[in-house]
Amino acid sequence: MLTALTFPAIDPVLIEIGPFAIRWYALAYIVGILFGWWYAKRLVSEPRLWGASGAPIRPVDLDDFVMWATVGIIVGGRLGYVLFYNLDAFLAAPLTIFEVWHGGMSFHGGFLGTVVAMVLFARRRAIPFLSLIDVIAPSVTVGLCLGRLANFINGELWGRPSDMPWAMVFPNADGQPRHPSQLYEAALEGVVLFVVLRLLTHRQLRLKQPGYVAAVFAIGYGLARIVSEFFREPDIQIGYFSGGLTMGMLLSLPMVLAGIGLLVYVRRRDAKRA
């Protein structure tokens, strides 16, 4: 067998008191949502980021939206996993759909669920939808990073076989050294994307152009996920599609195209205004 790093055996359960257990996976969602709430409020509370007209969103609006976002993430993420990744298994045992503590969440489903929540909330509060999604987009990147780190701790969603010196043998896999693709995704989807969006909001002041930050987020996440999929082992129940494509790639491509379309719209809109 090729030389490989030892997988750090971290207990997926952080704290266990009697029948109650707090898992790293659940904690990643909780901290990610709380950080996103705090960071979004910081964005709308800095007048220089928005120009003379100020932010069209109030911090109190985000206090109310956090519950909408939480429902969108959980419901959308679970339904996305059920529909995109393991429909046959859930049809055979429908009640397991509600056992979210065992894992099984789809980012793309959670993304769509959050978008639906933003559309409904923006209409109810008469908030510009594009500005709302501009604020939420950079706020979710830390949660994405923490979620992938939790996947790593759980020893799930491992990478393809590799002979790189940092390859690891995951305890639930087949004994082959594999890419720690969860860490690649944490870096690209979380750290790198956060830095890029931070530069857009605080250096280039792109929040003044509604839709710009959201467009870059969609493009950036989609590309980061597609790149990561080249190192990630596809779900065993799905495998590869024609041409070596994976489900993650197929679901990310529409995000890239939608982001490009939104970016073109923003540029044309601003050019007309100018």
Rank of each mutant, 00 (worst) to 15 (best):
F170V: 04
G222D: 09
E185G: 07
E233R: 05
A167V: 01
N151K: 03
A137H: 14
F170Q: 02
V169Y: 08
E189A: 01
Y184C: 00
V192P: 08
N154H: 09
L144W: 05
S228Q: 06
L205I: 03
V227P: 02
Y240W: 15
E189L: 13
L130M: 12
C145G: 15
S228W: 10
A186V: 01
R178T: 07
A137M: 14
V100N: 03
I219R: 11
V227E: 05
G175I: 09
N172T: 15
A173K: 00
P165C: 09
L188G: 02
S162C: 14
P161M: 09
H202W: 12
R225V: 11
P180K: 04
P128Y: 12
N154Y: 07
T141I: 09
A137L: 11
E99N: 15
G211F: 00
D235V: 10
I238F: 12
G110N: 06
G239Q: 11
V115Q: 05
V213Q: 02
A137V: 08
Q176Y: 04
A186N: 00
R148Y: 10
L157H: 12
A218R: 01
G239L: 13
Q204N: 01
A122R: 08
G244R: 13
G103W: 13
L199S: 00
G211H: 04
I238M: 11
P180W: 06
A173D: 14
G175Y: 10
E189S: 01
S242P: 01
L132N: 10
K208G: 01
F230H: 12
S131H: 12
G222H: 06
K208I: 09
G239N: 14
V115H: 04
V195N: 00
V116A: 15
N151D: 12
F231T: 09
G159Y: 04
V116H: 11
E156D: 10
I153F: 14
F121D: 08
A137Y: 05
V213H: 02
P128K: 07
A150F: 08
H108Y: 07
Q209G: 00
G175W: 01
F152G: 04
I133W: 13
V140Q: 05
H108E: 10
L112K: 08
T114R: 01
P165T: 11
R160T: 13
F230Y: 03
R178S: 11
P177T: 06
I136V: 15
Q182G: 03
V135A: 13
V227N: 06
P180Y: 07
